[in-house]
């Protein structure tokens, strides 16, 4: 489902990733750990094809970095859900509208949008807060809205870039639990974090990025 073959990428001649290979199966939960600046976000950007590899090949679903055309990138992203540390919510729209936005850009019908948004808001436990503006929500609630937005298009893969980075430990645990629930319902999850305590509670494989390369690791409990 997700494959990276010998991927390398540089910025201004500064190599960030070299020879990274990774396979992620459908429905898998993969945690990517590493210190700041080791290329975790870059790896995710390669997966949603915001960046193209300088070397090697990235395959996500039926899309491949060597053949994808620029106008096909939005089609890939509609099949993915993406969550960020800073939530990236639109401040001038309510929680409901933020989630609905992901469907509006695909041209979905109004009736379908309402139904799908209500369903997904229920999944993340935020139906009662759907009319609140982002600034009226706590950090954890904002991240739930961001996750709802990522899920509303029913993605086969959820990419979470430091999803708990701005949250307190209790809320971070709740968000992780939400991601695990989503995963158990069949959506593959790739989560990056530098929080090793959190990773210990996550299911699935752990990939560590270090010295520009990736390797599977087992953490001591």
């Amino acid at each position: 489902m997700v494959q990276l073959y010998n991927v390398g990428i540089s910025f201004d001649k500064h190599s960030v990733l070299e020879g990274v290979s990774l396979d992620v199966a459908p429905g898998e939960f993969v945690s990517i750990v590493g210190a700041s600046g080791t290329g975790k976000s870059t790896l995710l950007r390669l997966l949603y094809m915001d960046l193209m590899p300088g070397k090697g090949l990235v395959r996500v679903g039926s899309f491949s970095s060597d053949t994808i055309r620029k106008k096909q990138v939005p089609l890939l992203r509609r099949r993915l859900g993406i969550v960020f540390q800073d939530f990236k919510l639109l401040e001038d729209r309510s929680a409901f509208e933020n989630v609905a936005f992901a469907l509006q850009v695909t041209g979905a019908k109004s009736a379908d949008i309402t139904k799908k948004v209500m369903t997904v808001m229920g999944r993340v436990g935020l139906n009662h807060r759907r009319n609140a503006m982002p600034h009226q929500l706590s950090g954890g609630e904002q991240q739930r809205v961001a996750i709802a937005r990522a899920l509303v298009n029913e993605p086969f893969l959820l990419l979470a870039d430091e999803p708990t980075g701005n949250l307190d430990p209790v809320t971070a645990h709740d968000i992780l639990q939400l991601l695990i629930n989503i995963n158990t319902q069949g959506t593959a999850v790739i989560m990056t974090t530098h929080n090793y305590d959190l990773v210990r509670k996550a299911p699935g494989r752990i990939i560590q990025l270090k010295d520009r390369t990736a390797a599977e690791v087992q953490l001591k409990s």
Partner: peptide
């Protein structure tokens, strides 16, 4: 710009 970035992430086309 924030709206544009979000649009990109959720799969809006260039024309959209």
């Amino acid at each position: 710009r924030q709206l544009i970035t979000t649009m990109k992430l959720v799969g809006a086309t260039r024309m959209f």
